[in-house]
Design a protein around this nucleic acid. Structure first.
Lengths: 240, 240
DNA sequence: TATTATTGTAACATTTTGTTACAATAATAC
DNA sequence: GTATTATTGTAACAAAATGTTACAATAATA
């Protein structure tokens, strides 16, 4: 491994030029829908976890591995949703600042200041199952509520909005709730996921009947110690 | 303009390396759903209309312009649906053959033999409104039924399948029928579009009621000379 | 043992969708 | 002209899905 401080960043010859990826990782804590944002070392710049594609790995591999490296989160189901390729999307100033603040030589990494097209992915994860770890480039990695996002670099704000739209469109069709809940959960917890993601509320009885008749749930034992009332059943998703 | 036969293909310095686009253009003739396929000059190779992205144009611009240049079809509404980035998707043999058969120098166009990631778009168009014209690289450009496609180069077969899936998913939600019909059309013609795209048939009365109650159609005068029976109304889509 | 809040489900109302029936025609044949 | 023919527009009814209300069951707590 190269130990020269000035050239230890990503090397041009290892990567496909002009191609990047970004990821919008949604997390749910039982109450709120949040997303994962990195803050770059000493720059005050906030960004989505992203990266580049090595010449010898597929796009999907690059994204799975890259997100793992930057966040410490493993076993994510990432779904591609859009490729962003506007002319004005890339801001070389931001990238330059990130390089400088991380002690990386500009000349040696000039290819990173060129124009990039970015393929965007999203994932859903249960908040409490993971402990995100920032990589060497980032000061911090944290969950942010959608209505309390810091200003993001480049077009990352647009990417987040589009991810949210896609998530809402796909919620029912793709059984996405699965990733935000523990193995076993109550009907109320499931309803919470739907309500927070879609931003609307449902009648308890109608929601329950619809979910039960959809034939996607397995009913297990009851969960006790939930309060002074009848204990709810626990459910899990049928794997299809 | 460069007139040297060996170097008159796309020049490396004008384009973003490793990035291509492909388009699946669906056409409907009142009866069948077809797609547009190019046959490359003297190679027996069939492919989707595609191209590359210039350094000074956005991805969407490149696609709109590129498809126009390769097919002669203007004013297409192209929608991005997926980016293909597998390692094995690019077949440099096919590209080499295309270059040779078009009298282009391999050395001068070596960058085209490298790995590419392709952003795929689809469009819908009324068959009879257009007259596709092949560009200089292609022998022919023709409409093919989905069940009579020739073998396509690289992963273009996969791209077509995925385009069809996306089209079906989006048919209702995005009012796509619009692009396949003349300005004014009968209810039967509209039903035909839905049935051919979705590959299933609907009850006439239920379909008619659903479309009328969806409040997306404007009713116009009747169309006479349709045969020995009551004349149907003509409709157009409300622009929203 | 009474109280409390939530849960599971039934019952009914409303809306949407599926099906059948039939009258209203344009063109054609006579 | 008039009868014939096939398709269209719409109403009427049936079935299914969804929305709403009601209420008994029941864990924990007081």
């Amino acid at each position: 491994m190269n130990t020269d401080k000035y050239t230890q960043g990503p090397k041009k010859e290892d990567y496909l030029s002009h191609i990047a990826f970004d990821s919008v990782i949604f997390g749910f804590n039982g109450k709120e829908l949040k997303i994962l944002i990195l803050e770059y070392q000493n720059t005050g710049l906030f960004a989505l976890p992203g990266g580049f594609v090595r010449r010898n790995e597929s796009l999907d591999e690059a994204v799975t591995k890259g997100v793992m490296e930057r966040t410490g989160i493993d076993n994510l189901y990432l779904e591609q949703f859009h490729t962003f390729g506007d002319l004005n999307r890339f801001d070389s100033m931001a990238m330059e600042r990130i390089l400088i603040m991380n002690g990386l030589d500009i000349k040696a990494h000039e290819w990173l200041l060129d124009r990039f097209i970015s393929i965007a992915y999203y994932a859903l994860i249960n908040f409490e199952e993971v402990n995100p770890i920032p990589d060497a480039l980032a000061d911090s990695i944290d969950w942010y509520s959608l209505d309390e996002l810091p200003p993001l670099i480049m077009d990352h704000g647009t990417i987040v909005q589009r991810a949210l739209t896609t998530l809402r469109d796909n919620l029912d069709r793709k059984l996405l709730g699965m990733n935000l809940l523990p193995e076993k959960f109550t009907m109320k917890e499931l309803q919470n996921v739907y309500e927070k993601i879609l931003g609307e509320s449902f009648k308890r009885t109608a929601f329950q009947r619809k979910m039960l008749s959809a034939n996607i749930l397995i009913r297990h034992e009851k969960r006790f110690t939930g309060g002074a009332h009848r204990a709810p059943y626990l459910y899990s998703f049928k794997i299809q």
